[in-house]
Design a protein around this nucleic acid. Sequence first.
DNA 1: AAACTTAGTGTAATTATTACACAAACCCAA
DNA 2: TTGGGTTTGTGTAATAATTACACTAAGTTT
Lengths: 236, 236
Amino acid sequence: MFPHSVNPNVSVDCVIFSFNNHELEVLLIERSAGNTDKVDEVKALPGNLIYEDETLNTAAGRVLTELTGLDNIYLEQVFTFGDPDRISKQHDQDWLRSIRAHPEARVITVAYTSLINKERHNLSPSSFARNAVWIKVKDVPQLGFDHNEILEKALSHLKQKIYIEPLGYELLPDRFTLAQLQKLYEAILDDNFDKRNFRRKILRSSFIIPLNEKQQGVAHKPAGLYRFDKSQFHRI
Amino acid sequence: MFPHSVNPNVSVDCVIFSFNNHELEVLLIERSAGNTDKVDEVKALPGNLIYEDETLNTAAGRVLTELTGLDNIYLEQVFTFGDPDRISKQHDQDWLRSIRAHPEARVITVAYTSLINKERHNLSPSSFARNAVWIKVKDVPQLGFDHNEILEKALSHLKQKIYIEPLGYELLPDRFTLAQLQKLYEAILDDNFDKRNFRRKILRSSFIIPLNEKQQGVAHKPAGLYRFDKSQFHRI
DNA sequence: AAACTTAGTGTAATTATTACACAAACCCAA
DNA sequence: TTGGGTTTGTGTAATAATTACACTAAGTTT
């Protein structure tokens, strides 16, 4: 491996969502300061400066892997944040000084997002990520830099997208019930739907295929199981 | 005025659309090389490096003004392009060498877009824009850098947006006919609609207010005039 | 066997979408 | 002044989508 040269002015940040059958969660890291074992109590989105010789998309994937261990995740660009003061809060600067060659350099960041099923991926934080944790979107505290704003933008991007693409095939188990799917839509859109209308509409869409199986071992009438038919749509 | 320091790694590009009552047009500049009066025959979107102390949005407005004279245009971010090779074509490099301190530096560009009525704005190209011209979107030639790709992305952004926001209040005259409005929608969406259905739908929307006036001096039945009611919606 | 819990279903009213054709209003030219 | 040219403006029927709404069925637990 040759060493890569770093672009001091451009970073990527990743907003990775998951679903715990109830609520949306987002992946955050706990920053550790330099070589010390001191954990910075402020959480942040996984992100870092790009290399000079990689695309933004590649950078997002690499940085996500380096910080959290998540590998081979499909990432989609959301928005770019470039306020000149976005990294200049004192606390953020203190932290940057411990890890960056030019902590004072202006950094524009390109946000990427993805949806994953956290059961299918293991986290193994490293680099300056002392820890990587799933936090309920509704419980997200004040984050470093402008990361709350980035999260908000990724969320509204997600809300828009769910009308276009049948999201969720990544967020749910392979076989799922329509109640689970409905809860997912409700979590993303922060709304509630009528069960009958939701079912009618979603089954009309041909992405969701009924299986001849039922839930087992639940203390009530078992629900039928469904799966996504990925062949019915294509990423652009 | 103090001199501004330039960020060598980040630029903005502006995709400005207008409408000639028939087709969509986009604003391009003809690049002039350095101090020479030689016109680079390749056209490009108006764009340039950002200053260290301005936001991306501010940079987009400033650059647009500097290159084309368009002032005070509402600009909206579209997408960010960061391919490591996006400015390395020989011809683009030749031109960059004539105007940039570090022509070889990697540049990530943030694209912005707007819709304007070209009748209401004057072009006065300056800086390295030898000329600024409106080109029909369907006639756009091969542009410098990755600007064809950027234009495509801005166009699809526009198509998406027209479903959400009642665009067009900027693109049409203050008073317009429903046929003009329909042609605008058809130009943007590259589609054709049934006149009766279009009218019914658009009039249902409450943004479009009938006036008690008719076209004058046309050699056929004069059409009724309408205006937009801007109070009926708000930019986010 | 009764209580508990969630699944699964139908209908009527309203609204939106699609497809389709002809008379009315104005100008112009003969 | 009349007829031709051109674009405007309008209605309806068929189909599809949306909304609102409540009870029985199928399991488990006690």
